[in-house]
């Protein structure tokens, strides 16, 4: 069975300007219990964290532990 590409909005947003993944930070990726955050290279060539998988418990360790306050946890659309 071939796969479709259905899109979903993700609840967690990272402010690229504040994120210091370039300096090697991976704190939010490390702490997330659902392991849904990853680091990616942006078009400008900087690194930033982002939510790769829409599987979030809206629990907040990513936001609470980010050293620069770059992460905002919103509620997943389906339940907000």
């Amino acid at each position: 069975m071939p796969l479709a590409q259905t899109s979903t909005t993700v609840p967690v947003i990272v402010n690229d300007d504040l994120c210091i993944a370039d300096k090697g930070c991976t704190v939010c990726v490390d702490v997330c219990p659902l392991d849904v955050l990853r680091i990616v290279e942006t078009d400008e060539g900087n690194k930033t964290a982002f939510m790769k998988y829409d599987e979030c418990w809206y629990c907040m360790p990513c936001e609470a532990d980010c050293p620069t306050g770059a992460v905002t946890v919103n509620l997943p659309y389906l339940l907000k």
Binding site: L34, E55, C56, W57, Y58, P76
Partner: peptide
């Protein structure tokens, strides 16, 4: 959960 969101559980979904 009634929201239909797989990880919108009471328990930690891990």
């Amino acid at each position: 959960p009634t929201s239909g969101y797989l990880m919108g559980t009471y328990e930690n979904p891990t």
